[in-house]
Design a protein around this nucleic acid. Structure first.
Lengths: 217, 217
DNA sequence: GTCTATACGTCGATAGAC
DNA sequence: GTCTATCGACGTATAGAC
């Protein structure tokens, strides 16, 4: 992330850049592995995906994987990071979306790739256990980043009068993330849980009081 | 839970019940293993606790564990179940507590035994992966049970005027569980996240409108 | 640098001896 | 009913071919 060698990256074609583009081929290969791994994890989650089985499915040796990724845990982290990055690239969030809108949209995206939700859940659970610095770093950083983004959106929404002004932006940000993650989990175990209804409810509760409430049940 | 053989249980002493108390000794031993295992998991979480290491710490062979518990996953499930049962036994929830009160109190309990929170998180993540029926059964059942309990509390609180009546009890139940679980996770990764503030905020949002709100930030 | 081959120690699970 | 022995698979480490 901050330690890439020279530039000169030429992913996809190493035709004439062999002798003077020493890292290009490796970087392209690494990216290729990452892309193929995303598909594998999107299909199968993270359990049952040993280094050997994923290597076989990709078409490399399991030792090649450890050449590009120093551990299985780091591979998992980077696969999720890359998948999230690509999703954001394809369909970025609008600047004035509300916090709950963001998480609702993320939930909708995730329904298409359950394996990545399983991978995310596994990474977070691993991060809680002692002795897993890669997963812990990923989870801590991701939560902090999303919290900061959502808190900023809360402030903007409050300034424009679309959200109650008597709530703490940081508390709302943490609450919205928790609700989104937790509801996603419950929904995956039992699709009858009112995931979108609960998120809509939270959005409604955060809206400035309108005496003519629309009724819940 | 529903499949115990005869009674005759004599935990702690098997002095004269050897020849005619066929299941008693085994049951006592099983319970003893469970109790010791709870302590081990409460201290160390679920990672790094292989069947061999936990067996060694308890003082039995690792094969003995698989004799009483058909798999490592089942042991994990039963350890958490038993720990939760014992906690409820020591300090049961009052009948008229609000949903958020319940989860706030659970969060407070959990701070004392971080290893069990890690175990819970691991079990839920495992349950999401295909091919883990024991964990899936545990998580699905637990969520359904807690949801039903909380929804009922919502209805009672609405009837007594302590909670907004324009919200769907089932949606509130799912939302409160999600918020509680998710905030716990975030807090374990970063103790600066406003866990109790966010839960209090949710409780306040669910309270019937009181124009003189107390301010959030 | 890129990648293969091989080996080490540990894992969950199982079979059979006592 | 409980143990020892063993199985195949795992993540990881290392040596060396290209």
């Amino acid at each position: 992330m901050a330690s890439e060698p020279p530039e000169h990256a030429d992913p996809g074609g190493d035709s004439a850049a062999r002798s003077r583009g020493p890292y290009a081929k490796g970087l392209a290969r690494r990216q290729q592995i990452l892309d193929r791994a995303i598909e594998v994890f999107a299909r199968r989650g993270s359990a049952g995906t040993s280094l050997r089985s994923i290597a076989q499915e990709i078409g490399v040796s399991h030792a090649a994987l450890t050449h590009y990724f120093s551990s299985r845990e780091q591979l998992l982290v980077e696969v999720y990071r890359e998948a999230e990055r690509q999703a954001d690239e394809v369909e970025p969030h609008s600047a004035d979306a509300s916090p709950v809108d963001i998480m609702t949209e993320s939930a909708r995206r995730n329904h298409a790739v359950p394996g990545l939700v399983q991978l995310y859940s596994t990474l977070v659970a691993t991060a809680l256990e002692p002795g897993h610095p890669d997963a812990a770093g990923f989870a801590t950083t991701r939560f902090a980043t999303v919290r900061a983004d959502l808190a900023e959106r809360v402030r903007r929404n409050q300034a424009s009068g679309r959200m109650r002004s008597d709530v703490d932006p940081d508390a709302v940000a943490s609450l919205v993330i928790a609700a989104s993650d937790g509801l996603q989990t419950q929904w995956m175990l039992d699709e009858s849980v009112p995931q979108s209804e609960a998120l809509d409810l939270l959005a409604r509760l955060l809206t400035p009081h309108r005496p003519e409430s629309s009724g819940g049940a």
